[in-house]
């Protein structure tokens, strides 16, 4: 968006070097975000940091290739849908605690020993990894949405409606 709005750069996006490097790196950043999310209950990280990293991978694509490229892959309405879906699923986990465990936000999967739960293993800690995943989806989608909305706004002197 910074490159788009500068008048000297007519083509969409940045130079070939930036495009090549970012197309190599984008999946690595995305995978790192997913890793941070799903091991959030064992190592530093969690839903917040991982969600922001996933949003950062899309922002990298947006800076390198231009906004239209990203909007073909993840349109605005799908980003807002992911946002709502993440928030609703996180609330659903809490309501399931109310139904199955006796109170809101109780860790019902861990209390009732449904899954084998041993410390320091990936499948442990009951609902905490589930909540981490949903929080990650919600935070990533919403931060991507904010930057997309900020870059879609064109001020009047760039739209050509100068008074």
């Amino acid at each position: 968006m910074a490159a788009n709005s500068s008048p000297s750069n007519g083509a969409k996006g940045m130079t070939v070097i930036v495009k090549t490097i970012s197309s190599w790196v984008k999946m690595l950043i995305f995978l790192f975000g997913i890793y941070i999310i799903i091991t959030g209950h064992l190592t530093p990280g969690g839903g917040f940091a991982g969600g922001v990293i996933i949003a950062g991978s899309y922002v990298l694509l947006m800076l390198a290739f231009g906004r239209e490229f990203v909007e073909e892959n993840l349109p605005l309405r799908w980003a807002s849908r992911f946002d709502c879906i993440g928030a609703l699923l996180f609330a659903l986990v809490a309501v399931l605690g109310l139904i199955l465990g006796g109170s809101f936000f109780v860790n019902w999967l861990f209390r009732q020993q449904i899954l084998p739960s041993k410390a320091l293993e990936l499948v442990s800690a009951g609902t905490i990894p589930l909540s981490n995943i949903f929080i990650g989806i919600k935070v990533g989608a919403s931060l991507f949405l904010i930057i997309l909305v900020l870059s879609m706004f064109r001020p009047a002197h760039l739209r050509g409606e100068k008074e």
């Binding site: 209950h41 996180f90 809490a94 410390a119 800690a125 909540s131 919600k138 949405l145």
Partner: peptide, 30 residues
């Protein structure tokens, strides 16, 4: 809670209402 990261266990189990409020505030700011 079974989570070895104590901070995560505080965020998502002991004090999960904080996280719910955080999601609400983020939604409102968007």
């Amino acid at each position: 809670t079974g989570a070895s990261n104590i901070v995560t266990s505080v965020i998502l189990d002991f004090r999960a209402y904080d996280t719910l409020g955080e999601a609400t505030v983020l939604f409102a700011s968007i």
